[in-house]
Simulated scan of single mutants.
Amino acid sequence: MVKLVLWDIDHTLMATRGLGGELWGEAFEQVTGVAMRQQAPVTGSTERVILRETARLHDVPYSDGLFTRFADALGALHVRRAAELRERGHALPGAAAVLAALDERGIRQSVVTGNVRQAAEVKLSVFGLDTYLRMDEGAYAQDGETRPELLREALARSGTTATEAVFLGDTPADVAGGREAGIRVVGVATGRTTAADLGVAGAEVVLSGLSDVGHALGAICE
């Protein structure tokens, strides 16, 4: 029986419509003093890895201290521009309804995301999605570099075993991370990866989206 549902955020529950990249570049320049010319690949990665690789592209020395300053700067920028995020971004169709339906069933929910925690909290709160999520039981960029690390941290924080959890994400990295952590993965083809490719990556079930609430609940709770 499913006791815990873990959600990826970007392109699974919501989209920022380009604002996320703008804030990222601004935070990078704030903490390094270097204007960002190129960002390392972000799909399926975590902020810590993205920052390290982006710093390398700009010949900027990376350290844990740099990541801490970057995380603080990025979180503060999300807080400052939350109203703009609400205007430009949006929750994906069906996201709130599926979260609410799972909550009504008494199933605990949290997030496993490559975002830094403060940014994740702002993104979810501006669209009212945080109401259904136990944020303290999730895992964020501050908690590790890889999806398996983050998933295991969320399981530990929630006191849940891998066999009692389900993870929903939109990238092959999400699928691979869930499989490595022993968690059943439901792919959601609302990002840059097709449903077919999520299936090839190993997702046990793939949804085209969350707008069919009954279908989504069936896939999650089977």
Rank of each mutant, 00 (worst) to 15 (best):
Val79Ile: 12
Val206Glu: 02
Glu26Ala: 11
Val5Ser: 05
Met135Gln: 11
Ala196Leu: 07
Ser208Trp: 03
Val42His: 07
Ala82Thr: 10
Ala216Gln: 06
Tyr62Ile: 12
Val188Asn: 05
Leu150His: 04
Glu222Leu: 06
Val60Leu: 06
Ile183His: 03
Leu19His: 02
Leu57Cys: 10
Met36Asn: 00
Thr16Asp: 13
Ala196Pro: 00
Arg108Lys: 13
Ala15Ser: 10
Pro172Gly: 00
Leu19Val: 12
Met1Asn: 01
Gln142Gly: 08
Thr68Met: 06
Leu129Phe: 09
Gln109Gly: 14
Ala189Cys: 04
Asp8Thr: 04
Ala27Pro: 01
Arg157His: 08
Thr32Lys: 01
Thr43Gly: 00
Glu180Thr: 15
Glu149Arg: 10
Asp197Val: 11
Glu222Ala: 14
Ala173Pro: 00
Ala201Ile: 04
Gln142Asn: 05
Ala154Gln: 04
Val200Ser: 05
Gln142Leu: 08
Met36Lys: 02
Val49Asn: 05
Val200Pro: 00
Gly199Ser: 12
Phe70Ile: 05
Ala83Val: 12
Glu164Leu: 11
Ala101Asp: 11
Ala55Ser: 11
Gly106Cys: 12
Ser158Asp: 08
Ala141Val: 05
Ala76Gly: 04
Arg81Ile: 07
Leu85His: 11
Val188Ile: 14
Ala76Arg: 15
Val98Ala: 08
Leu124Ala: 13
Arg86Glu: 15
Asn115Ala: 09
Arg52Lys: 15
Ile183Ala: 05
Thr163Gln: 14
Ala181Thr: 05
Glu153Tyr: 00
Pro172Glu: 13
Gln118Cys: 03
Asp103Lys: 13
Leu99Gly: 10
Leu150Lys: 08
Arg179Glu: 08
Gly89Cys: 13
Val205Gln: 08
Glu104Trp: 03
Val200Asn: 00
Gly182Asp: 04
Thr160Tyr: 00
Thr146Trp: 05
Ala120Phe: 12
Ala40Phe: 05
Gly202Val: 07
Asp72Lys: 13
Val175Arg: 05
Val111Lys: 06
Thr46Trp: 06
Glu53Tyr: 02
Ala40Gly: 03
Arg134Pro: 00
Tyr62Glu: 09
Cys221Gly: 02
Ala83Trp: 08
Ile9Ser: 04
Gly209His: 11
Glu137Ser: 14
Ala173Tyr: 13
Glu137Lys: 01
Val186His: 01
Gly209Phe: 06
Val206Ile: 06
Ala219Phe: 05
Arg117Cys: 12
Ala119Asn: 11
Glu47Pro: 02
Arg179His: 03
Leu150Asp: 03
Lys3Glu: 13
Val186Thr: 02
Ile107Met: 10
Ala96Trp: 10
Ile9Met: 04
Thr131Glu: 15
Phe67Gly: 07
Ala120Asp: 10
Gly199Ile: 02
Gly209Leu: 07
Val31Asn: 00
Gln30Arg: 15
Leu85Asn: 06
Glu222Tyr: 01
Thr193Glu: 09
Leu85Val: 12
Arg80Lys: 15
Asp130Pro: 01
His215Val: 07
Leu74Asn: 04
His58Ser: 10
Asp143Thr: 07
Val49Asp: 12
Ala55Gly: 08
Trp24Val: 00
Leu51Arg: 07
Glu137Gly: 13
Asp212Gln: 10
Arg81Cys: 02
Arg69Asp: 14
Ala181Arg: 02
Thr194Leu: 02
Ser125Cys: 09
Ser110Thr: 15
Arg88Glu: 12
Thr194Ala: 09
Gln142Pro: 01
